[in-house]
Amino acid sequence: MKCQECHEREATLHFTQVNNGEKTVLHLCEKCAQEKGEAFIVNTGGFSINNLLAGLFNLQNNFQPAKQAQAPLYKEDSLRCDECSMTYEQFVKIGRFGCANCYETFKGQLNPIIRRLHSGNWAHNGKIPRRIGGSLHVRKNIENLKQTIQELISREEFEKAAEIRDQIRSLEKQLERSNEGGY
């Protein structure tokens, strides 16, 4: 059905209006419906992913596109977790692991599954536990600072870069000391 207004585009919106008991039916395309204005409840341009992205605009820079990972779902009967004696087949059946060690045991099979579940992501980018995370905090911090240095150098802000370099050195010393102390 063609749009009643422009007679060109396909009519995608159908309005039924009842005014004083008199019924009128209108068949319009989205464009003409928009032009017709406020009498109709038209969502300008339809609700697309872009509308939603607008809400995220200032927030995201590490949004990773989903990489299609092929999962080699071969059978591995012999694989069994030392800690909880769960086999890979059992895991596939119930969809849950038996213990933390299972992640290590089934590492080979697991990575593609994890990527598929988390739209291509494979590395944790969030919270680090305070106590057991210990040196991990310092290392992440050093990584971040090294990135900052590169940015500062490219902007030729050498004085600031030198300050950051000193910070990194002291953090690295701290790391060495904690390693000697046996974590």
């Binding site: 933390a100 697991l110 590395a123 919270k127």
Partner: peptide
Amino acid sequence: QIGYLTSCPTNVGT
């Protein structure tokens, strides 16, 4: 590498 380990791999990470 993959953060907090959970019973179901759909929750792993954060």
